[in-house]
Nucleic acid binder design. Structure first.
Lengths: 138, 138
DNA sequence: CTGGCTGCAAAAGATTTGCATAACG
DNA sequence: CGTTATGCAAATCTTTTGCAGCCAG
């Protein structure tokens, strides 16, 4: 698996400093940042980077399938760089922490035909909600 | 299962015209309206109803567990009145239609212990995405 | 009566858009 | 060099808040 900047260049993207920094911020597991958080962190390495630019880059990366939007309960969308290994999310209703879950003993995600209502299903997204270890034992 | 206005009165709610109308708008299966759509429909029956009032009522109903927020890809949250029979959602990536799916042959939603990362899971939410019959056969 | 609702308008938060300038390839 | 991306500010959209008056119980 090649790294992100490399893949982007292959897709004909101009490799700008802004894009490189955003790609760098969006790296790792259990990373689910809001656009604003991405902007803040990117600013530490590239102080002149504009908010709108961050939004542009995030939208482009989503359109390319390189990152995924994660809908939480907050107003702000969060972005998940781990778009290539399909996984689900565990959200703590106490502190808001989001963790990735990689289906090991895969919970059956296939919907039985009669329940499919004629849809052609392409993706299945599972969100587990509950309390994380820290919030469970206060 | 008693109807909504009745249950609300039992919980000490003042039964106002606004609340009755919002409750009425939020009735049925496959209903997933945005706050603005709820306001528009409610206005047809009660022209003076204010947008803020609709938001207040929706938030209260969510807090009481009478309706559920549905996170979609749009900016605006949607509200699902069907909070008592647990179910999942089928979203058409073509036209945005959302349909309820009641787990018949229940897809295993229990996460194996090692994958749980110490969380105490209370709810599982599945979102299937794909094309609805209409968008599949254009 | 009286505290809990409502409506309005203004504020706050998140994201998008328009346009002149900068810089990748 | 010619596009294409950036940065800034203003515009948009969604939701929340503050406050005076109204009404269900």
């Amino acid at each position: 698996m090649s790294n992100l900047p490399e893949r982007l260049r292959e897709r004909g993207w101009r490799l700008t400093a802004q894009r490189r920094v955003v790609a760098e911020v969006l790296t790792g597991d259990h990373v689910h940042l809001t656009a604003d958080e991405v902007h803040t962190r990117a600013s530490r390495q590239l102080p002149e980077i504009g908010r709108a630019t961050v939004y542009n880059i995030l939208n482009d990366l989503v359109a390319l399938g390189e990152i995924r939007e994660v809908s939480t309960d907050d107003r702000a969308k969060r972005y998940d760089p781990n778009a290539h290994r399909p996984h689900h999310h565990l959200i703590c209703t106490g502190c808001g922490t989001i963790r990735d879950v990689h289906p090991t003993a895969d919970p059956t995600t296939t919907l039985p035909a009669p329940a499919r209502l004629g849809f052609t299903i392409t993706t299945t997204e599972i969100t587990y909600r509950g309390l994380c270890p820290t919030c469970t034992h206060p």
